[in-house]
Amino acid sequence: MGMKTEYNDEWMQRMIEGHGHDIKNLIPILQATQEEYGYLPSAAISTTAEELQISEDVIFGVATFYTHFKFTKPGRHIIRTCMGTACFVKEADNLLELLRDRLGIEPGQTTSDGMISLERVACLGCCALAPTIVIDDEVYGKMTSNMLTKLLDEIIDEKGPKEQ
């Protein structure tokens, strides 16, 4: 997960200019924003609101309709817990509970130190490995609470999970 660029209002205005100041371009504008920053910074929403002459609240309403859009800066590491049928049957909810407990955040949120984002996904397509957890781009199958704790310890100790 490479760090995305820092927020830049000039870039934002140029990008909106490119799309045209019309409310029908709102979603492409939001997509471009997320592509640039990895999420929708609140300053970007303000600028979009001003340029398109609609309220920030309306933009927020549109954006929250789509799970694609994020409102918090993604962390250095992203942990995705699979909650598809196979993983669910294999008690992936216990793993999610453990992550919630340990990180103190809900799926969709990022720890306050900006290190770890937690997400839940529907199915990763490797049900034979259930329950599955993906940390950054590495897939970990047949997960147990013990293994997950170890992995977390490593991330938190700043070693990075890939050294394993």
């Binding site: 609140s42 309220s55 609240d57 927020f60 309403g61 549109v62 929250t64 309709f65 409102f71």
Partner: peptide, 19 residues
Amino acid sequence: VGAIAFTKRSHNTKVGTIF
């Protein structure tokens, strides 16, 4: 004015404001 909007969707839909 547009001070409120439908936020989120499905069961979580709620009339609300930005953040």
